[in-house]
Design a protein around this nucleic acid. Structure first.
Lengths: 178, 178
DNA sequence: CGCAATGTGTGCGTTACTCAACAACCTGAC
DNA sequence: GTCAGGTTGTTGAGTAACGCACACATTGCG
């Protein structure tokens, strides 16, 4: 892929995330973004319809990356798999902190929850074992919300624990229940 | 000026400075620079003849900036004027540290000394005062080398003192002698 | 020695980005 | 009201940077 595209998009995405840490999404103008990204205003329209599309694409990209990490970690235990995720969270903490802290970004939270539920679906077994007879949907929503909540708490509290500890502990809780 | 030019040149200049902190100038290839700068190799040739020209232009740019700072600070005392310089040194410490530490870059040292001597020329007066009868050239070379030496020492020792302290102390020594 | 690998400088056609300008639209101030 | 100031989305023309490929050094290794 062309270097220029990558660099422009990288700068634009970084810019909007930074700006969202400083003010509400509604107050951010396209000009704000182009200024911060050090890119011509028109360049943004080359890649995105408007700022909403930009945010959408940004969210979808991260959701997609998380899904991919999930699949490439399909052989792992929850502990190991979670570690990959928490590493990714830490590497992109600016994005996730913003997305899970600003209340305007509830959309991301639900996309995130959807992903978790979807990815855990293959893991749960209600035909055998401790979960025999239970509702698959309830289990998925229950532990999906649990994981999302733990991640939210982690970011809300400034990521005081290491990714490894977060992954291990949540991993234990999941392994125990699936 | 076109954003693209500025960004490319900025990246290229930063790249070569970084690389010079890691290996000798002779061992740095154009490809190294373009890789590090994340630009096409051909882009470098759009702006510079070769890596020597690149280094030259980089040096001249900083010498030019220092000269400009000097002139815009012509009304100041040595203490005040030096402070502007040391601020600039600190802001571009990567460049200056490299240029004054790697022994291959003796050329920069002499360009730097030339600048200092040139800029101090207007300050010295051998027709009156304590310097009456002394050789202007000797005074200039003497205190020029003194300032350059102090700056070199500062960088060599990891810039332990603040720019302000460096400026004040060297300023006092110069004010006392001009 | 030959020969593979790597770097250099250059030219090619294509494309992403640039700046500047535009009309249409809000918004707040007088 | 309206008028100035700012944002938006879009256009057009020019150009910097792109990837790719080439011929020609240079280097090191069997």
């Amino acid at each position: 892929m062309d270097r220029r595209v990558l660099k422009s998009q990288e700068a634009i995405k970084r810019a909007i995330i930074e700006l969202m840490t400083e003010k509400s999404f509604d107050d951010i103008t396209i000009r704000d973004i182009s200024d911060r990204a050090n890119v011509n205003r028109g360049t943004i329209y080359l890649h995105y319809m408007d700022k909403y599309d930009l945010l959408d694409k940004l969210i979808e990209e991260h959701i997609g990356n998380l899904r991919e990490l999930c699949h490439s970690a399909s052989e792992m235990t929850f502990q190991e798999g979670n570690y990959v995720w928490f590493e990714y969270f830490a590497a992109n903490h600016l994005f996730f902190t913003t997305m899970l802290n600003t209340k305007s970004a509830a959309y991301f939270r639900s996309r995130f929850l959807d992903l978790v539920v979807q990815e855990y679906k293959v893991e749960v077994d209600v035909t055998d074992g401790q979960n025999e007879g239970l509702s698959e949907d309830i289990i998925l929503q229950f532990f999906g919300a649990a994981v999302v909540g733990a991640v939210e708490w982690w970011f809300r509290n400034g990521m005081l624990l290491s990714p490894r500890v977060m992954a291990e502990q949540t991993g234990i809780l999941l392994d125990r229940n699936f």
